[in-house]
Design a protein around this nucleic acid. Sequence first.
DNA 1: CCACAGGATGAAATGATTTTTCTGGTTTAA
DNA 2: TTAAACCAGAAAAATCATTTCATCCTGTGG
Lengths: 297, 297
Amino acid sequence: MIFSALEDNFLDNINLLRKVQAHLDELRKSERKVANYILLDPASVLQMRLSDLAHTADVSEPTVIRFCRALGFDGFQSFKLQLAQYLGSSGNYVQFSVSDSDSVADVNRKVFDATIGSLLNVRDEMDPVALEKAIAALSGARRVEFYGFGASGSVAIDAQHKFFRLQVSAAAYTDPHIQHMSAISLKEKDVVVAISQSGRTKALIQSVNLAREAGATVIGLVPRNTPLAALCDLPIHVNVEEVEHVFTPVSSRIAHLVVIDVLAMGVARSSSEHLQDHLKRLNRSLRTLRANNKKPT
Amino acid sequence: MIFSALEDNFLDNINLLRKVQAHLDELRKSERKVANYILLDPASVLQMRLSDLAHTADVSEPTVIRFCRALGFDGFQSFKLQLAQYLGSSGNYVQFSVSDSDSVADVNRKVFDATIGSLLNVRDEMDPVALEKAIAALSGARRVEFYGFGASGSVAIDAQHKFFRLQVSAAAYTDPHIQHMSAISLKEKDVVVAISQSGRTKALIQSVNLAREAGATVIGLVPRNTPLAALCDLPIHVNVEEVEHVFTPVSSRIAHLVVIDVLAMGVARSSSEHLQDHLKRLNRSLRTLRANNKKPT
DNA sequence: CCACAGGATGAAATGATTTTTCTGGTTTAA
DNA sequence: TTAAACCAGAAAAATCATTTCATCCTGTGG
């Protein structure tokens, strides 16, 4: 009972609809009608009064209230407010395409919102267990190499950057030959992070195979159900449904970057205070490369 | 009058609080009390009834209603719902710091949310006019070069990538010497995009100076009020307030990437159908580098 | 300096909507 | 088959938002 209460609380702020779904089977029959309608068209509920919803779901008004109470809310109003917040947080950021009539401000908004939408999706789809394993592997690694081509190449470089700062011996290779050469020289305590938006890049598959043969652990930032996902020791699934359209921005590389952030944060956390000292010193030394606030002459 | 109505409509779905702010001076004195309280602590309003808010703001209940109407809402309820949606969309994603007691799932959530929060901020702070000018400059450019160091280096590389696809002659330099050499060889129709998280990197300032002397147009993705911002022809301000803490992820580079996406989208839009053909062919040719769905042997 | 017009404000009445109570019906288990 | 528990809705009650209207300012012209 306590556990379920905690869980409720956890879900509360995350995903109301998921919570409704989860409670479906502990609801009474007619309350379930309400739940089903809400799941069907949550947005429309916002404009409704209690009696509207009751009528639409074909139940009486007290039933709707009992439904709200069953989910832990004070009443209908309080439920509606939560719903509004939830819809506000996830409803707005949708796939889109830019049309010619859009102003630059529109384009700006759409690109940002699409990116945010992707991030929200990826965030909720993330598998904490896979992350945990990956963080453990990275923390214990003797050496970490990041492989990627094209847009994922710059993700790899960025990742190298991040892990450098954590005093992890890191490299990023975006050239297939070098990748292969490096892969065959890996040892057991080494970790490879393979980054791919398609999950099917031939050269990368080959690098991963070589790395595994050499005994290294391979973490993959790849879409689910792809050849690369099947090949990695520790696949981290990053699924960004991208409409295949020239005017759709590619936000999957951004999702990848954020996942790298999560991994880096995890590694940093699991490391010693010694590292934190190091990071402070690093920040200080970077400052000498900067000009101060005076207008340059 | 029509214009203002349009503008209202525009702001409606974007940022309720900003809308309240904008209407401040056309409100009556006591209505303004309501507005001020709401701006002060919007979240608390959600739990309040009409009479609570009236009492807290030290006005009568009809006044609160008149305030809501003045903003174009049906009444108090409808205002509260909008507010809930707005707070849901931007309120949740706040700065944070990871603590030792956090689970990996928590870390994941926090890192994503912080990133999303930054993006929302940057999105709303973006100056469409600056963007428009930058897009115009890029569209007309003979050659585009991206300069950046460190984390901004990988942003530069990513940008080059993106613009390559648009058949723009693009280069990315992350080495100061090469930057300088390239900068002095630029011509008038060339464009440099200088990317910096700090806005004060000495070497980058120098490169920008050289590029300007050579006659090139310099676009800057830089924080406001920094030496680099002052130096660029077309500064695009990207302000990510980052708490200076080792365990805070650096999300400004992600904001930069999204801004690059916006620029690329803008350039793509303003270009010919010929380009769109090109992009389709490009996608097809990339496909040959990929394995198909069969499990690799 | 006063009187008056006009708008701004709040008290109280009104009306809408939510919530509670209670009763009739239905299932379940002995 | 019957009692017990449970479920659902009608109607009453309570709550809360909205409207009406009277009052109070504020500023202006006499």
